[in-house]
Design a protein around this nucleic acid. Structure first.
Lengths: 124, 124
DNA sequence: CTGTATCCTCGTTGATACTG
DNA sequence: CAGTATCAACGAGGATACAG
């Protein structure tokens, strides 16, 4: 599908299909992890540090979810201490593009949004 | 900011800034509403029907949130019965682009992801 | 280091009923 | 039609302890 094409109408069924994916990547941490892994493979604790604020449990669950969806691969090195690398699959890298675009949008418009919030909260 | 540029490293601080926005548009309904409004202004119940499955309460909350962030405008026509139009702002339209790209990605790769899920759940 | 297993809390959501 | 108010339920997420 050509994602560069203009708007195309879709029905509610498609909306819900999209919703399924959105629920996955739209959760609290998945997009951040995907953005992070865009630079290459990372180890568990490396990701944990880079994301910042995520609990061990949630990182595990997030990575499992991404792995389940075929977005990242999990590679275990049977060393002592153990080492596990996570890396974007081809599918993951294809997701990385729109995710990064969204991230860049968020980063670029953060001030605008915060201003809008302040204005909205202030009036009345 | 040029969102078409290649990867650029950002620190955890930026990640959390992005997280703020993601929490907003990454909730259960906001992205679907934004995608919908890309075609032009819609009335409250019109949106409700098109999204499908959203409760009145959640649609209200979602639209309020988007309005607060300066992404949509709310226009009340003092008629009987009342009529309220919601429309994307310029900021909203600028968000619409990456959101639509993500939506198209989701739509395009839905089969792949479902296959990956089945495979992941099946093994072991 | 990289997880798994519990427990517990808090926020989000949905259902329902009511109002201008 | 377009909300608001209230309540109940559920689940995501954090803290902690433990294991390989």
């Amino acid at each position: 599908m050509d994602v560069t094409a203009g708007p195309r109408h879709r029905g509610p069924e498609d909306c819900r299909g999209v919703s399924t994916i959105l629920a996955r990547i739209g959760d609290k941490w998945s997009m951040l992890v995907v953005m992070l892994l865009g630079d290459g493979p990372r180890r568990f604790n490396e990701i944990k540090r880079m994301v910042g604020g995520i609990s061990q449990r949630m990182l595990t669950l997030t990575l499992r979810g991404l792995e389940r969806d075929g977005l990242v691969t999990r590679t275990v090195f049977p060393t002592i201490p153990p080492r596990v690398d996570y890396e974007l699959t081809d599918l993951g890298r294809s997701l990385w593009q729109p995710v990064e675009a969204l991230g860049n949008w968020a980063f670029a418009h953060l001030p605008e949004i915060e201003a809008a919030r302040t204005k909205f909260d202030g009036k009345d």
